[in-house]
Amino acid sequence: MSFLKRLSRGETNFDFVGRWRLWFQISAILILISLGFVGFRGLNLGIEFRGGTTINSPNATGATIEQLRLLTDEAGVQGAVIQLVNDGQAVRVQTPALDPEVERELIDDVAAATGSDRGEISIDSIGPSFGALILRQSLVALVVFLVAVALFMSWRLEWKMAGSGLAALVHDLIITVGVYSITWFEVTPATVIALLTILGYSLYDTVVVFDKVSELADEAGPKEDYGDIVNRAMNLVLGRSLNTSLSSLLPVGSILFVGSLVFGASSLRDFALALFVGLAASTYSSIFVAAPLLAAWKKGDPRVGSRRPKVRTGRTSGTLAPSRPRPAPRPPKGRR
C-alpha cells in the first residue's frame, strides 16, 4: 500500500514518541538559534513602534503610491508608510528614523517625483502610533489568555496536556520571532496580530491531537503503555494534521509567495511570513513537541486509561491500533 494511502487510512506506523530525543534536539537547536538572533541582533521594529520621520509634500504631478514606493525602495528605506492626501493633491511619506544623508536624498527624490520645491516640503518627527499602552495591554491580555487556556485544558482534558500544549506554544512563538530577527523583516502591528493568531492556531492544533489521545486513553486496556497510546493517536490524526496544515498554509503561502514575490506587494510580506512560519511551526510542534512531551511526562503515572470510567458505547475505530493486528471488520450492513 502506498504511503499516501496508508496516511489517508491512518495506518502509518511512525514512532513519534520513541524518538523524542531527536525531536527535542531539533527544537532546542531552533530555539537557541532564535533566541541568539533576537538577543544579539534584535528586531527590525517598524515606525508604528519606534516613530520616525514624516514628509509632507504637495503633489503637482500626481505621483502615485506605487511610484513613491519605488523611490523609498531604491533609497533602501524599509517599511515606509505612503499615503495620498486629499485625493492625491499632496503626499505623506512616513519613514523610520533615517540617516541625514539618506533622508536628504529621499526628500530630493520625493520633490522631483511630485514636482515640488524643496521648500514646499515639510519634515517632522513622528512618534509611535502603536504605543506602549497598546503593547502593555496586549501583554496583559496574553498572560490572562494563557492562564485561562491552561485552566480550560486542565478541566476539559488534563493538566499535563495543558502544560505540554503551552510548551509547544512557547516553542512556536520563539521560533517565529526568531525568523523575524534572522530575515530582518519589519515588525509591524500586523505582525503582532499574526503572532497572536499563531497562538490560537497552535493551541487549536494541539487540542485536536490531545483530544484523540484522551479518547484512546479512555478506551485503552489497563496494561497499555501511555507512549504507545500517544503514538497510536498521532498516527491516526496524522492525515488530518497534514491536511489541515495544508489548507491553512495554502492561502497564507499564496499571499507570501504569489502576492509579495510575484506581484511585489512588500507590505503584505511582513505579516504573511509570520503566519507562514508560525503555522508551520505549530503543525510541527503539536506532533513532535507536545505529544512526545506529554508521553514523557506521563510515563511515571499510574495507569491513565483506567482512571476514568469508560462512558463511551458503540464502536469507534479508536480501538483499532494500526500497529497491531486488526480485528476482523464487521461485515458492512449498508451494502446489499
Binding site: I65, E66, Q83, L84, V85, S254, I255, F263, A265, L268
Partner: peptide, 17 residues
C-alpha cells in the same frame, strides 16, 4: 488620506488569496 497599503498591494493580496 488614502489607504496606507497601495491599491497594488491590495490587488496582489486579493489575487493571492
Amino acid at each position: 488620506v488614502s489607504a496606507t497599503l497601495g491599491s497594488d498591494s491590495l490587488r496582489a493580496g486579493l489575487i493571492a488569496g
